[in-house]
């Protein structure tokens, strides 16, 4: 279980927002800033955070949609930048992505069968004669029927489209799937269906998930370990039971207390002051210091590093 599948070391991605006349960057958005973590084989690693915290950017770096500004990615022990072209291709095949918006992630001009067949064909995984059979198999895996193969995406509801997106990701037999908010655009009753499907597929295909979401309930349900991000930084990583029972970083505490919980006594809420600051000019020192209710001396001066405070529980906070 504890075999590391993917390891990320000091990964950063900066976007240049504005340059001066010489093309020198004058304002830079630090979407992901020196993030390190590891995902074990067969686990679901949850990544939570509010909008603009860089979780989606992180996911897109892993599937090679963005090139990182600095930092290293190890996949199955091999460093990504050291790979040759062929190995890189196989890396890309091994890591797939499920997108957030099922209305935007399927090409409206292709039938769903063609959408699922495409990755098999371009990666030459199967002889053409067997592709069709595989497509039908994948459709069945995600709970769609054979006769829907030749329909177009607009003929489907959001939940069904998300199933097509899942089938497309499965088509190349990936090892890791980055699920970028796969249920947040869906209705509550459909969310449960898709979450259960993801759970089943994980068992069936021995998958590893990086599960990105802003809903803490959803992340808790599906993940084994959870990382919390705030303004491009990982602030806490812990096994889910530990994280939800004993959150250490004040931001995690506030995040957990902000969620409305049904059928429990109305709890005392930590209401954070202010808004998430802009990632273009984040506060100095700890990024959370401008909103933190436990802020003290060193917070505004130094950026805290991730420390292991108890087995497998990592926190970046000056309190620890």
């Amino acid at each position: 279980m504890n075999e590391v599948l993917m390891k990320v070391q000091d990964l950063s991605k900066y976007f240049t927002i504005d340059t001066d006349w010489r093309g020198k960057p004058v304002s830079v958005l630090k979407a992901v800033d020196e993030v390190s973590f590891a995902i074990n084989k067969g686990e679901a690693f949850g990544l939570v955070g509010e909008s603009g915290c860089g979780k989606t950017t992180l996911g897109k770096i892993l599937v090679n949609l963005y090139t990182p500004t600095s930092g290293k990615i190890f996949f199955e022990g091999k460093e990504l930048s050291a790979l040759n072209k062929k190995q890189r291709r196989s890396y890309c095949k091994d890591i797939q992505m499920i997108f957030q918006d099922p209305y935007a992630s399927l090409n409206p001009r292709m039938t769903i069968g063609d959408i699922i067949a495409e990755p098999i064909i371009i990666n030459k995984l199967l002889p053409m004669s067997e592709v069709e059979e595989r497509v039908i198999f994948l459709l069945n895996c995600v709970g769609l029927a054979r006769h829907q193969r030749n329909r177009f995406p607009h003929e489907f509801s959001g939940g069904q489209r998300q199933r097509v997106g899942i089938a497309r990701a499965l088509a190349v037999e990936p090892k890791l799937i980055v699920c970028d908010e796969p249920v947040s655009a869906l209705d509550v009753s459909i969310q449960a269906q898709v979450l259960n499907l993801l759970d089943d597929l994980k068992e069936e295909f021995k998958l590893t998930y990086l599960f990105i979401a802003h809903g803490l309930g959803v992340v808790k349900h599906i993940s084994d370990r959870v990382g919390v991000m705030y303004l491009g930084k990982l602030v806490e990583i812990a096994p889910k039971k530990e994280l939800y029972a004993n959150p250490l970083n004040p931001y995690t505490q506030a995040l957990l207390s902000a969620i409305p919980v049904i059928n429990s006594e109305k709890k005392e809420r930590i209401i954070l002051k202010g808004d998430v600051p802009s990632p273009i000019n984040p506060p100095a020192g700890c990024r959370f210091s401008s909103r933190c209710f436990k802020e003290f001396g060193p917070c505004k001066l130094n950026t805290p590093k991730l420390k292991e405070v108890s087995p497998d529980h990592w926190v970046a906070c000056h309190l620890f």
């Binding site: 095949k93 797939q96 992505m97 992630s105 090409n107 495409e118 371009i122």
Partner: peptide, 20 residues
Amino acid sequence: NDYVQAARVIGNGDSRIIFK
């Protein structure tokens, strides 16, 4: 659009992305 990004993730080359 996400579907263009998705096309890249599953391994499409540039010209195929443009034309298909």
